[in-house]
């Protein structure tokens, strides 16, 4: 998926009431299938940037166009649908629903957002979970798994419907080595097929040269 950012800005009001500009006039052309590294220190606005690109938030100004869709023109409901269809979102913590089994965590959201037929989703979920080393834990609950195993489940869920845009926000932070390797490999394997936006301090990713780097934090300041 080709993505064009044109001068997007986003500010938040902090508790004292003054506005703080987190994203300050970013423009970029992201080619379909590109691997984009989003860098910057903690608090630089990486998560905010991802939320804008996934349509969870709207920028204060500027436009985001993804493929033929101008995201910044859509209503919340339309952005929800777009995100459901196009985005696989992997983030650092709180990735799974505690009351659902592992297999349900992967399949159920996709049924709810209409990603496909249940039987097909189920089959692909089992394959994917097995490939990620979770095949023996399909009917366990998240609390019965390690943090690393849970993140692998989140990856399986994010990638199940072959999204054209993958957003990975610190996907390997706090993971054991084996899990981090599996997660990193699973994400990087999709390079070329899906556009990947990645924020990570993990050396496993720095070994791979990104097609584009977006550095955040430099311009951020009080508006």
């Amino acid at each position: 998926m080709q993505i064009t950012l044109s001068n997007i800005e986003k500010s938040f009001r902090d508790p004292s009431g003054s506005a703080r500009r987190v994203i300050a006039g970013i423009s970029a052309d992201i080619a379909a299938g590109a691997l984009v590294a989003v860098t910057g220190p903690s608090g630089a606005g990486k998560t905010t940037f991802f939320n804008l690109l996934s349509g969870l938030l709207l920028p204060d100004s500027g436009t985001i166009t993804a493929g033929k869709t101008e995201l910044t023109k859509l209503s919340e409901r339309e952005r929800d649908r777009w995100r459901a269809k196009e985005v696989g979102y992997i983030f650092q913590t709180f990735n799974l629903l505690g009351d659902l089994t592992i297999i349900d965590n992967v399949v159920l959201p996709h049924i709810l957002i209409g990603s496909g037929a249940k039987g097909d989703l189920q089959k692909r979920a089992v394959e994917s979970l097995t490939a990620l080393g979770i095949g023996d834990h399909l009917h366990k609950y998240p609390h019965q798994l390690s943090v690393g195993q849970r993140q692998r489940v989140a990856v399986a869920r994010a990638l199940l419907a072959s999204p054209r845009l993958i957003i990975a926000d610190e996907p390997t932070a706090n993971l054991d080595d084996a899990s981090a390797r599996i997660v990193a490999d699973a994400i990087l394997a999709l390079r070329g097929r899906s556009t990947i936006l990645l924020a990570s301090h993990d050396g496993r990713f720095s070994a791979v040269k990104p097609d584009l780097t977006i550095a955040l934090g430099g311009e951020a300041g009080h508006a």
Binding site: R83, F91, I113
Partner: peptide, 16 residues
């Protein structure tokens, strides 16, 4: 809140 936010991130609407 966090679990519900997760559902929103996955593309499940406010109404749902």
């Amino acid at each position: 809140r966090r679990e519900l936010a997760l559902l929103r991130i996955l593309g499940i609407g406010r109404g749902t």
